[in-house]
Design a protein around this nucleic acid. Sequence first.
DNA 1: GGCGCCATAGTAAACCTTTGCTGTCCGGCT
DNA 2: AGCCGGACAGCAAAGGTTTACTATGGCGCC
Lengths: 345, 345
Amino acid sequence: MSSITEVARLAGVSVATASRVVSAADYPVSAATRERVLDAARELDYVPNALARGLLTRRVPVVGVIVHDITDPYFSEVVRGVEDAASPTGHLVITCSSERDPDRERSYVRLLRSMRAAVVIFAGSGLADPDLEAELARHLGAMRAEGAAVVHLSPHAGGEPEVGVDNAAGIATMVAALAELGHRRIAFLAGPRSLHVARARLAGYRAGLEAAGLEADERLVVSTSFDREGGALAVDELLAAHAGATAIACANDLLALGAMTRLREHGVRVPDDVSVAGFDDISVAAITAPSLSTVRLPLRELGAHGWSFAERLLRGDAPARETLPTTLVMRGSTAAPPTAPGGLR
Amino acid sequence: MSSITEVARLAGVSVATASRVVSAADYPVSAATRERVLDAARELDYVPNALARGLLTRRVPVVGVIVHDITDPYFSEVVRGVEDAASPTGHLVITCSSERDPDRERSYVRLLRSMRAAVVIFAGSGLADPDLEAELARHLGAMRAEGAAVVHLSPHAGGEPEVGVDNAAGIATMVAALAELGHRRIAFLAGPRSLHVARARLAGYRAGLEAAGLEADERLVVSTSFDREGGALAVDELLAAHAGATAIACANDLLALGAMTRLREHGVRVPDDVSVAGFDDISVAAITAPSLSTVRLPLRELGAHGWSFAERLLRGDAPARETLPTTLVMRGSTAAPPTAPGGLR
DNA sequence: GGCGCCATAGTAAACCTTTGCTGTCCGGCT
DNA sequence: AGCCGGACAGCAAAGGTTTACTATGGCGCC
């Protein structure tokens, strides 16, 4: 593979000049010389060595994205957003599926550091592990000191993310929409109490209730795991409590899907007897029967904003924290409450 | 960030010795010296510079995976397979969503080359574009000459992939299963004629028909785009043709999903009136109502095998081409044909 | 005509590691 | 006692690029 030395030799100039031409430095080079160098580069099929360049600039045009699992549509959307934003500037995206395993996360960050990645974006941070925290903090500190940018995206265990999503407001608009349809008793499937996101969404539910002038009833709030299984269990619990809900808002689409399945098993019709609403708008939501009313998270934008935040960091700016808005998506799983006194009893 | 020079200084040895310790070369170093170097490295939080190392070894522990779109579950599974296989050896995975755009693909390969990536895996190759082909061939040739490994996975426009999936056999087993259920008129939604995969699957359909002793009828084969929209359109076409199919096999789960939706809109029940079968087993397939009978592709394995193929290539072996088997997954969207003369008319 | 400045071009150091080759020391063998 | 070889350590080059600094030449201006 040809190096810049060979390009310079073929063009009959010094390597310095050749370098200035091919790397488009703002250094004066006469048009004739430039042309000769470009010709030589073309002829030799010259591709600059990013390693040598990175060795000097202490940074390689690569952005690492730490996700839980690239297979999860949530994360692949975010990664795609990063990629779309980063690739026009010649940056490559490295995906790191940590599986929330501290060891994997640790080793990924170490690898990224050894590679002198310009940017690290945390899209799904690991669970709290003091040991990991410490090592991570050390690595991240060192990387920042080296000039790399580190950005945290929305669900971030260790505090406020640099770029977030307004979970609370999102849920609140859904609650408002349900109230608008005429629902007075709106249940909420909250997901695990331990997760930061879940807590934010629960807060949004409460705020939405208050804004709509509805009474809060703790019997209407059920905490379970963040998956379909949890949604099904929560429905059982709601039925057992005879809480009389006419609508069920969920902290998560998977919860909503699980709830719908279980409701069907109990012979409860959606949305005729009970309305169900999700959160996230994963791609399945549009194709279930009935299709799921939900709140769309701007996942691609989240990734893109994460990149642009990092880019500004790289330039030495101190960008302001951002919060991205969600959008309401009303589909077939919600309707006005039944006129006859109904709901889950 | 500390370099090996500082480690050596702190340990009171030469850089050569320090290097031999930290890079675990099989070179004799006394136990005491080794210990001192290791201590120094730990104290300084030394992380080797992969760029400097790569500059020397002409290769950096990175594998680029070219996909159509990381957001497509098909590709994210493959990428995950590569990642799981590659990361234990300290390799990082770069995802490149080319969107089947020759320009993007070109620029990704160029970037990967400039980075001296050790491996490039094509998981979803671009459409035929003579211009791209030429430039790609040049890049790939150069990379191979440099010692990098290049591997093509199953859907490969430019010929036989190094690691493939037996598409034809997969469809054939599905056709056999439908025939077994009693179906005699099995339609096939074939996807675009231009795609190599689509053609392979169509061939499988024909082979399956023949093996089951069923008559081929060209009115039962519909070519559309490879998405839900295409599935819906194909159903319209099938209905218009009054072909009287009792089962619809699809070259793709998305086609099947689109077909099911449109069938519902026409008041046709699945599987009571018509059976529908997909191909790929994307994750949604299990949670639609009814759940989709389909053929599972070993996507993760495909990625993992791609990596191991590349690894052997890197070691200088000449591994043999591989073809991975598919598995039949029968769920709720298929059943015996209606006893009363039914089907799509 | 001489001086200095501008426009270019070149020199060489630096980035960090690996590794072939060259020491050095010591123990053991003849 | 002399020699040899083994075990370990160090020197220095090489890998490809960028960039601060230096050199060259031509031209304008007084």
